[in-house]
Write a protein that binds this DNA or RNA. Structure first.
Length: 262
DNA sequence: ATGTCACACCGTGTGTGA
């Protein structure tokens, strides 16, 4: 099964690149974040022409998440929102069953700055996400993938200049500890599992030529339940989608494991 | 370089969020 996750930073702006990506990679599931669209404007028809059906949690101008899958194995049993999250209207969580796997697309709050109410809300979001993972693993026993923009760099290897981030969000023990606690419930960071020493940045600031200077962060993750971990085949970032016309500031992460959809 | 991009708003620039 081939899964991709991509923070598209406005689906309206990114549709040409999304269609290009679907045609090139033909993923069995694509999780998107920051779709920034209303439910009414979500481009279901265009995606269906490309062979994909979408389940979306859309709230308008900010955030928004979606799960896409081919028409033969569409996203079903959709759940939107995360029990315990601070503001479900921010539209940061959607789950669907795709080919027998429960897939969640998540856009964790940025947190803006340390010591702010939004940072506290970010930590509470992590707590809610962990509780949901605990419940899903207890219910299903496995077959779970949680993927998206986690807005945390798990280790200094995932940060282009750890010293420059010393007073910043994304790298604090509070954030890293919450990601670690979620993983301890029975999840594995797919890219890191397959590339223990890899520098797999997924986001680069639009400003100051950071992409071309290789100044990025690895903050988009695919977390798979431990039963799937031995079946992981590949995990990589397609940097070509950070280049060319109208790129997102994130590149897609693509993960494959053994066990194909019917 | 405080460096860019995307959004809403009556807007032809400014504030907000990332």
């Amino acid at each position: 099964m081939k899964l991709a996750t991509w923070n598209v930073n406005s689906l309206k702006q990114r549709m040409p690149r999304v269609l290009e990506f679907l045609a090139e990679h033909r993923p069995d599931v694509l999780c998107m974040q920051e779709t920034k669209t209303t439910a009414e404007a979500f481009p279901h028809a265009e995606l269906e022409t490309a062979g994909y059906l979408a389940a979306d949690n859309s709230g308008g101008r900010w955030a928004g998440v979606a799960v896409l899958a081919p028409a033969a194995t569409p996203p079903i049993a959709v759940v939107t929102g995360l029990p315990g999250e601070v503001d479900a209207e921010e539209r940061r969580w959607i789950e669907a069953e795709v080919a027998g796997v429960r897939v969640a697309s998540v856009y964790v709050p940025n947190g803006r700055a340390l010591g702010t109410p939004t940072f506290a809300a970010k930590l509470r979001f992590f707590d809610a996400m962990r509780a949901r993972v605990t419940a899903l693993l207890a219910e299903r026993g496995g077959g779970l993938v949680v993927t998206g923009d986690m807005n945390v760099a798990a280790a200094d290897l995932d940060v282009y200049d750890p010293a420059a981030f010393s007073e910043s969000t994304h790298v604090t023990p509070d954030e890293r500890g919450r990601l670690e606690a979620l993983l301890a419930e029975g999840m594995v960071d797919a890219y890191r599992e397959l590339s223990p020493d890899g520098v797999g940045y997924t986001w680069w600031d639009y400003r100051a030529g950071h992409f071309h200077k290789h100044l990025g962060l690895r903050i988009d993750l695919a977390l798979v339940s431990t039963d799937l971990a031995p079946r992981l085949r590949s995990a990589g970032i397609d940097r070509s989608y950070r280049k060319g016309p109208k790129p997102s500031d994130h590149a897609p992460l693509i993960v494959e494991w053994d066990g194909a959809p019917p």
